[in-house]
Design a protein around this nucleic acid. Structure first.
Lengths: 242, 242
DNA sequence: TGGGATTTGTTCGTATGTATT
DNA sequence: GAATACATACGAACAAATCCC
């Protein structure tokens, strides 16, 4: 499966995809930001053909919104989509810990702890590396299941959740508490499935709460979306008035 | 998310994708079958550019294998990949029934029963519609969860499992027993989560067993794959001998 | 309201790589 | 083993749609 994690980034398309994903996770690209094909191509030194392929792939992953004859933009998930993404993510990550509990090798534990140490080290600094490492921790766990399919879906949902967080929960303030990561690893090593599951649920739930995704949707600020039901067909209000 | 089920098939790319997916599910296309860009384009009356986009999207879904500078082929999952796909599929479909148990409306039940009746009606006939309807039953269930993400993943895995079945379990012989579908709907309507989950597990497990996916992998017949570990780099045996 | 600039949709030609005789 | 046929990779260019002033 030519998915997110399978690509070795030896080809230009894969490298560009990875760069853009990272830019999105680190909030250098915000939802709604425009992604013109030739501007992208210029930035990465490739032709429009390649940029187009990249946009197509990222659209398949739900990170980019492709509108017919219109400029592509970074996806802006609706509140319903965001909630859906979070819910499925929690279910999938629960699968991950269930598969991992009591089956982690000492070597794997070392890798995880080293990663968490790195998360600790960058705490208090700029938020970009902090968010990236937090996201990658979950990817690391998924990879240890040895299930490429699970890895791909967890990665995809992780990136989409990062996108959602940058849309709905403005101040970052450690979306993923590092301590919670540490506790999860401990529970996994102890082979305590129930505790690990509960911790992971609570951990991701806390992230969702901080993003106000579990509560009522925030007041809609996008006029176009708000007014959509009141506007017929392709005509704008101004056109109808004129 | 511009996924499998979101596309309304109003564009040529979406229509071609849907056609090819169906051809794969109905076993008109078998794993390993060649998919040259221009042949595809000619068949559907589009240019190579469009065919290329289609191949790219299907590769993202794991149905097509894209090899650099080589002709694309219908994916041929290894035994490990097949098992992985089945395992994750079972987990996801378990999520589906857990969400649906006790929450189906009478209208939804009617839709499901009508679908099962249709499955019954084509039983004994040619196998293509039978397989297609069996696959679509699971899609129908997923859609009723109202979770687009879940729908997309269940669809993707369903198609990949169909591909696997056509590779490993030659005679079809009703991969999905129609009766089992009926029992699942009954359990869902009764709100019996445990029974519905158990039925779905057992149902998909039976499919996997029939495909010999849960047992030991079948004897490898693809010489190239078998000999791969014994051949260094890109050199073939003949080249090395010569 | 209209028109020019911008951006995408698509095709096609050339270069490069692969398979086969 | 080399030459030919074939298929893909990539980019340039034209047409159509959209955006913005």
């Amino acid at each position: 499966m030519a998915g997110i994690e399978t690509q070795v980034a030896k080809d230009r398309v894969g490298m560009m995809c990875q760069s853009l994903r990272r830019a999105i996770v680190e909030r250098a690209l915000a939802p709604g930001d425009r992604l013109p094909e030739d501007a992208l191509g210029d930035r990465f030194g490739v032709s429009r053909t390649i940029a187009r392929q990249v946009l197509g792939q990222l659209a398949g992953e739900g990170l980019v919104e492709l509108r017919r004859n219109r400029i592509a933009i970074v996806a802006t998930p609706s509140w319903e989509e965001a909630r859906d993404t979070f819910e499925v993510r929690i279910s999938l990550e629960r699968l991950v810990v269930q598969r991992l509990a009591g089956r982690l090798t000492a070597e794997q534990e070392a890798i995880l702890l080293a990663h968490i140490d790195e998360e600790d080290a960058v705490r208090g600094g700029p938020e970009a590396p902090s968010i990236r490492l937090a996201t990658e921790f979950h990817l690391l766990l998924a990879r240890m299941t040895g299930s490429p399919v699970l890895v791909r879906y967890v990665a995809e949902l992780g990136y989409r959740c990062a996108l959602t967080l940058s849309l709905y929960s403005r101040p970052h303030s450690s979306d993923c508490a590092v301590n919670e990561h540490r506790e999860i690893v401990a529970a996994l090593m102890a082979g305590d499935v129930d505790r690990a599951t509960h911790l992971m649920d609570h951990h991701l739930d806390a992230v969702a709460v901080r993003a106000q995704i579990v509560a009522e949707p925030p007041r809609e600020r996008d006029l176009r979306r708000v007014l959509a039901p009141y506007v017929t067909e392709k005509s704008t209000l101004r056109r109808r008035a004129g």
